[in-house]
Design a protein around this nucleic acid. Structure first.
Length: 414
RNA sequence: GGAGAGGUGACCGAGUGGUUGAUGGUACCGGUCUUGAAAACCGGCGUGGGGCGACUCACCGAGAGUUCGAAUCUCUCCCUCUCCGCCA
């Protein structure tokens, strides 16, 4: 959520950002509630002071009857006022929660089509064989049995393709560890507070992309970002310890409701895939630069694997609630002759951190909310598509990208 | 899953209805002392909200309740620990 003080002073920008993102919210209404709430809060405080003073009015350690009667009167009044406060408070909180983060100044306006390309790397070749046909021919993937055992969009990876996934994971892991990230395995389920604090839809909306565990306050994570955001919830981090960099490896579970037919074939959009996610807790003034740094790490990683790509600055209408700005790396699909999403990195500024109460104690002692950022190192299912499209041979074999060979027993060919 | 014991400030740990937002200790910060350091002594030291401010309100796992008054009593839930059961 946003800082109410910031909203008071920047109502127009908050309103505009929400609209640009496609959120129907009424900031004026929120500010009205904010005022009403503060006014009521003062009345409640006055009454509570009265109550406390009255209760402290003792003779020989006991109150007299008049004090008790007075206390009863105050209690009736207070109960009533507190009920009104709770009503207004709930409404206020609901509106506050519904506000998305503001967008950075350099975020393009518009929807998915309006994202701006800011860089290209590599050659746009075409004519490759579809990754699914290619993999099926080698008996490397089995969607039919995935469907039998779990359902549509579940799959088995087999043999060398499974080994390739493993190799990419290990390579990326070593790569980000060298960049200073601490490797973590994480809970694959999180509670509602963590999920909604990270920015995912609560169960009450019942749709969304998450799998909920029946009868439990748990949902399967759609990304390690959720588990990593919650890691420092309710903590005050010392300034000298920032930035804190983590790399979380986990499966990601997504319902992908309503996305059938859209890039549906093969491994591009599935219910479960593994992902190595970079995550950073930074000082507020560090996050903008750090966002560029995460992007640079992603680029360096994918260049080293040799996959052509471009980087786009995601338009406001395509940004999630927590992000103030997001870069996607889209790899060049040698099958489709177009760019398709491979990685994504976002600066969430203080939005997630405020939800989950993650703060920093500055050197001078004052306390403020930290900033959080996340970025994909490798999203495995899609990484496999990219590698198959760019390293396939006409005879159906697959060349191993040079940097991955040490992780595949130095094999050059699969 | 069953039985029991617990959840208090950065940490340890008092506190079972009435100036306790919380004794004491440790750590930390400032000062005295010292050539310097240590020790000793003195002082400071939770978070959040409201108010220009004096000040005030809330928070002792979470929520509800009892009471003039709750960290202290009751209920529900969550979590931790021990033992048993089960199990990669």
């Amino acid at each position: 959520m946003l800082d109410i003080r910031y909203i008071r002073e920047n109502a127009d920008r908050v309103q505009k950002s929400a609209q640009d993102k496609g959120y129907a919210v009424d900031v004026a209404q929120l500010l009205k509630l904010d005022e009403d709430r503060r006014e009521l809060l003062q009345q409640v405080d006055v009454l509570r002071t009265k109550r406390n003073e009255n209760a402290a009015n003792l003779k020989d350690g006991k109150p007299d009857q008049a004090t008790i009667d007075e206390g009863k009167t105050i209690k009736v009044e207070l109960t009533e006022l507190e009920a009104s406060l709770k009503t207004i408070d709930d409404e206020y909180n609901a509106l506050l929660q519904a506000l998305p983060n503001i967008t950075a100044m350099d975020v393009p306006l518009g929807g998915e089509e309006d994202s701006v390309e800011i860089k290209q790397w590599g050659k746009q070749i075409t004519g490759a064989k579809d990754h699914l046909d290619f993999a099926l021919a080698r008996d490397w993937v089995d969607f039919e049995r995935g469907a039998k055992v779990a359902g549509a969009k579940f799959y088995y990876l087999k043999g060398d393709l499974a080994l390739l996934e493993n190799a990419i994971t290990q390579y990326a892991l070593d790569f980000v560890i060298k960049k200073g990230f601490t490797f973590m395995t994480v809970p694959h389920m999180v509670n509602a507070r963590t999920a909604t604090g990270t920015g995912f839809a609560p169960r009450s909306q019942d749709q969304g992309d998450q799998y909920f565990i029946d009868g439990e306050d748990l949902s399967l994570i759609g990304t390690a970002e959720a588990s990593l955001t919650g890691y420092h919830a309710d903590e005050i981090i010392e300034e000298k310890d920032l930035p804190l960099l983590y790399a979380g490896l986990s499966p990601c579970y997504r319902k992908e409701a309503g996305t059938y037919g859209k890039h549906a074939r093969g491994l591009f959009r599935v219910h479960q895939f593994n992902k190595l996610e970079m995550y950073a807790f930074t000082l507020p003034e560090q996050s903008v630069d750090f966002h560029e740094k995460i992007l640079a790490i992603e680029e360096e990683l994918w260049q080293s694997i040799g996959i052509p790509y471009h980087v786009i600055n995601i338009a406001a209408g395509d940004l999630g609630a927590p992000a103030t700005k997001k870069y996607d790396i889209e790899y060049w699909s040698a099958v489709d002759g177009m760019y398709r999403e491979l990685t994504s990195c976002s600066n969430c500024t203080d939005f997630q951190a405020r939800n989950l109460n993650i703060r920093v104690r500055r050197e001078d002692g004052h306390i403020e909310t930290v900033h959080t950022l996340n970025g994909t190192a490798v999203s495995l299912a899609r990484s496999l598509i990219a590698v198959i499209e760019h390293y396939q041979n006409l005879d159906g074999t697959l060349q191993v990208p040079e940097v991955l060979r040490p992780y595949l027993g130095n094999r050059e060919l699969l």
